[in-house]
Design a protein around this nucleic acid. Structure first.
Ligand SMILES: [Mn+2]
Ligand SMILES: [Mn+2]
Ligand SMILES: [Zn+2]
Ligand SMILES: [Zn+2]
Lengths: 151, 151
DNA sequence: TTGTGACTGAGAATCGCTCTCGCTAGCTTG
DNA sequence: CAAGCTAGCGAGAGCGATTCTCAGTCACAA
């Protein structure tokens, strides 16, 4: 329910840069390239997909930079049963949403549910967390199945 | 919303045995031991946890048997960002539920939400799936945060 | 220009998980 | 019961995504 911190791409880079600097880290070319790719894509990307889209990226650096960006709260890592993890911009840089996960090809697509339902969900989950002495950070709602391509 | 196929432990083993036989596979001692451990536990277990609880289990066989049991639809594998996957009985052998996932220690606990909410969720997700030409198999709702133990 | 500390990338290392293979065990048929 | 067939077993080798190492770079400030 919070407005995205960055709407324009320029803002996005500013936010990324600021969050990194706060941790004594630099917003280098490789890191900016990753953010650009993730912002341009309309779905979470795996490392191979990132390397394919920008051949100048080194694999080891990309792994390292994604970890750094995740630590700085700029990027979010999605671990599924697929062979590769996927990465997307952190939610406060985009908007709260959920994922359609294809268990055949591993592809992930975004979707949202009505905010009324989202609200009910949050209330119910808040109650559950309280009952268990659990400090909730965020919820995750995925729909698992077969995508249109894998028919 | 479907009643569990097996309520008693005996039934559980019968179901497991039947589902394996349907695939020309046998319900051996090691496989039965795994099912027993999962039925007794009130949370999904990782392979190390299984091996610790039953020292007679061999690691490689346990990995193989869990894969077989998953293929037969008796066991469900949960992949998280924790180092180990965790396993629980398939939902039609227990009941539909969701997970509290501790991002600190990796522990997983079950919870349920009111069936009214679950129904709304299913309706909304059905609509989403239709819009995307996605053949939904099941949904997954997790609450990620820090458990009481990790405070 | 120099010093400090972060970054880079090729390759080595890690480690959960899967595969291999010689042997055992369960079931079926005669 | 014996023989044949197939599934299962487990120790260890292998696999592969991810992480780590380390010798050079680069950014930035003094
Ligand atoms: Mn997404
Ligand atoms: Mn569970
Ligand atoms: Zn697909
Ligand atoms: Zn914990």
């Amino acid at each position: 329910m919070v407005a995205p911190v960055a709407n324009r791409t320029t803002d996005l880079h500013d936010v990324a840069s600021t969050r990194l600097r706060a941790r004594d880290q630099r917003y280098t070319r490789g890191r900016r390239a990753i953010i650009d790719l993730l912002a341009r894509a309309n779905a979470p990307l795996s490392i191979p997909q990132l390397l394919e889209r920008d051949r100048s990226l080194a694999q080891s650096s990309t792994y390292r930079n994604l970890a750094v960006l995740e630590g700085a709260g700029v990027v979010h890592r999605i671990v599924s049963s697929d062979e590769f993890s996927r990465y997307e911009l952190a939610e406060d840089l985009t908007e709260h949403h959920h994922h359609l996960i294809c268990s055949s090809c591993g592809d992930v697509r975004d979707f949202t549910v009505p905010s009324a339902l989202e609200g009910e969900l949050d209330r119910a989950l808040g109650r559950v967390a309280g009952d268990h002495g659990f400090a909730a950070d965020h919820h995750r709602l995925d729909l698992v199945g077969t995508c249109a391509t894998c028919a």
